[in-house]
Amino acid sequence: MQTANVNRLTPYMFMAPAVIVMAVALLYPIGYMIYASFLDWNPSQRIGEAEFVGLRNYINLLGDASFRESFWVTLKFAAVVVTLEMCLGVGLALLLDRNIRGMSLLRTLFILPMMIAPIVVGLMWRYMYHPTVGIFNQTLKGLGFEPIPWLSDGDWAFASVVIADVWQWTPFIFILSLAALQSLPRSAMEAARIDGATGWQQIIYIKLPLMMPVLIVTALLRLIDAFKVLEVILVLTNGGPGLSTEILSLRISRTASEFRELGEAAAMSNYLLILLLILTFGMFLYNKAIEARAARLRRAAQEET
């Protein structure tokens, strides 16, 4: 009896260290942040001294035009970059899914941007966008065009951060799409060729539909990441001009460090967290649905035999 109880506990005992580390490293900060979001808390105070204000931070934020603007910029940024990156990444994968000499070198080159630290990417692009000595305006001038106010005009600044993000993260979509493409059943593609599908028709009717599960997960992963982007924009525009590129994570950082409103920053973080949770949950549901469907199909096939 005694032994049986101990035996039943064994797996939990093995899991305990990991659970404790998780609880301390993950749940404690989150709990701390949630608690902080109910406080009117100044960095000069200890957390115990801060005044408890309930949901006031959340309510204030909803009425705050610049927070709403920031939220909108974030949504717009995420939607635009993920759409562009998906189109470019999948397109590149379709183009480079072939065996020609030097292809492996080319593929490696393509994924280099992803490996550069975001701060460095930001600095690099800031130099390239520089109004007088940057390579873009130098080139435009050389060709006889007017220079473009890359980072000093609101609309151009948004486009500029989008371009930098697309440059850095398209490779992520590219390698995942390429892996998906190369794992597609080769004979189905050959059957399509014999059935009379042109290159485009193979892509539209066979390749893309078969890649879709991977593409959806990839897009969701990128979307989650795009909502959290900070460094590149921080270095490039620091949210300006005006609020044109002030995405949420940047606003959170500024609220905490410049405006010294820790409680409000925490509340903002929670709004972002909720948004990300919805996305993650959506991804989780999607995976579940796929698994359930696969299981159903397998069962049906087995019953036949």
Partner: peptide
């Protein structure tokens, strides 16, 4: 084809 090569979708 040997592995039938049906279009799974």
């Amino acid at each position: 084809f040997q592995d039938y090569a049906l279009y799974p979708h």
